[in-house]
Amino acid sequence: MTRVLPVVLVIALVAALPLLGDNYLLRLGTMGAMYAVMALSWNVIGGFAGYPSFATAAFFGLGAYTGAILQGAGVYMPLAWVAACLAAALFAGLLGLAILHLKGHYFAIASLVVAEVLLEITTSWTSLTGGGMGLNLPILRISVDAQARLFFWAMLALASLTLAMNWIVANHRLGFGLRCIRQNEDASGMVGINTTLYKVIAFILSAVFVGGAGALYASWVFYIEPPDVFATLTSVKPIVMALLGGAGTVLGPVIGAVLFLVMEELVWRNLLEIHAAALGILIVILIFFLPGGVLGLFKRRRKPAAPSRPLASAEAGR
């Protein structure tokens, strides 16, 4: 509890941001909260369970389109957001059952390609999604300032929810089981962990709030198009954020998301044409000089883990 209180205080402070009356800051805050949702969500499957998922873009885009289509059909906005969460969760459950038996690179590729397929489907299904022309959302009949506040608070609430989810998972047997799976999946079965179930739950948790964030984003920007919401970078950025802060920890992804946002604003906004290269350089620095993330700097320096060759398969192969 002593560690929860400061976090709640910080969230409360951030929630008071609209008092400054600066809409630019509010936009940044909304972005930061959205990044936090994505990094924290990825953390469950990638950080705790150790599965290199590149599916975030798929969940985000699916949520964005679910929300946009429902709102276009006249569904009350918050309900559309909830529906987007559910759609992403359902999709992740089915997808997880299909691809979570894959290991390592095979899983990474499968999860990466899913977003591409959804992108193509969305682009082709013009009658439902507007195709490549994109989709406009109904305009809200409130002032611009009120909108800025509304979306900021909504996104912040979603981020807090995702943070709480991470905290609960980390302190629950689910988190313990996922850590076992990350370190030795074969042995996890032997100690009584239902590995399939745990992995699917982790995958669903990595999707549900991202779907919501996608829908919020759609409502916020009023217009979405397939390459925007299904971009591969949407899958890569949350991983970079989580690694930046410290993957597999609860606060790490949040810290990473904030740092990432600051860098994005300070460095890249002025150098638009080398935006991608700057991200690339950040990644290289991160991998070589900050392997444990920012939080890793404060922990006892750990010995590098032994090459993670799965012992069981080595045994079976002999």
Binding site: P52, H105, A108, E273, A276, A277, G280, I283, L286, I287
Partner: peptide, 13 residues
């Protein structure tokens, strides 16, 4: 994976 992704962003850019 992430490292080669980063290098790809650099080179492609």
């Amino acid at each position: 994976l992430v490292l080669t992704f980063g290098l790809e962003l650099l080179l492609n850019n």
